[in-house]
């Protein structure tokens, strides 16, 4: 599903953020990407959604080399990847429903599909009954669920979560991971960037560790 081949990313100021990385994440896999600040995790994610260009190497997403993707095709790549952020990135002047529906409007989904998908993702993330609430009326955990619902609405084959529980208490964080595991069980590939050691250790999933732009550990059932 995702493959990095001899990938190098050097910045103009001389820092090598990704240093010859070779990595493959299969369809339906659940993987953690861990590492200290400055290890290259953020660059890794930015390269995946083509926010940045690699210096050399290839990135394959869903069978396509995205390094050769034209500018006009970038939105279509991003539609394959549902992104969840640490700070939720919700629109605070819009309701839960409007935040989720926006993702479906962007892909020009028909009205019937919008209604059906909204109902489905609200159930999946446990937010039925909160459709008309504004994000500020919700707890942090609920806001992250809205973000998750928005990422899921277009049924992307890949979900990338960047520190999804960084702003949440441990119990809420656990609930978010439960939901992510449930989504993964339906066949969605999930990559989570996190510092939540306890959760990584308890879930017994694949762990890829980056440091100074290199993969220093890649274990199928690893710990932090």
């Amino acid at each position: 599903m995702i493959e990095f081949i001899n990938l190098v990313k050097k910045y103009d100021h001389g820092v090598t953020a990704i240093d010859n990385v070779n990595l493959k994440i299969d369809k339906g896999e659940f993987a953690f990407l861990v590492g200290p600040s400055g290890s290259g995790k953020s660059t890794f994610l930015r390269l995946l959604i083509k926010e940045e260009e690699p210096t050399s190497g290839k990135i394959i997403v869903d069978g396509k080399d995205i390094t050769r993707l034209k500018k006009k095709d970038i939105p279509f790549l991003r539609r394959k990847i549902g992104f969840v952020f640490q700070d939720f990135r919700l629109l605070y002047d819009r309701t839960v429903e409007e935040n989720i529906v926006l993702a479906l409007r962007v892909i020009e989904a028909p009205e019937k599909e919008i209604k059906a998908q909204l109902k489905s993702v609200l159930q999946m993330v446990g937010l039925v009954g909160k459709e008309k609430f504004f994000p500020n009326q919700l707890s942090g955990g609920e806001q992250q669920r809205v973000a998750l619902a928005r990422a899921l609405a277009t049924k992307p084959p890949i979900i990338i979560a960047d520190e999804p529980t960084g702003n949440l208490d441990p119990i809420t964080a656990e609930e978010i991971f439960k939901t992510l595991l449930e989504i993964n069980s339906r066949g969605t590939t999930i990559l989570v960037v996190t510092h939540a050691k306890d959760i990584v250790d308890s879930l017994n999933k694949r762990v890829i560790a980056l440091d100074h732009g290199k993969v220093i550990k890649d274990e199928a059932r690893g710990v932090y």
């Binding site: 959604i49 006009k72 939105p75 279509f76 790549l77 991003r78 539609r79 992104f83 990135r89 919700l90 629109l91 926006l102 993702a103 409007r105 962007v106 892909i107 928005r150 990422a151 277009t154």
Partner: peptide, 16 residues
């Protein structure tokens, strides 16, 4: 700006 950035992440075309 923020709204535009979010729309970009969820795959909005420039025309949208």
């Amino acid at each position: 700006k923020r709204e535009i950035m979010i729309m970009r992440y969820i795959g909005a075309k420039n025309s949208f």
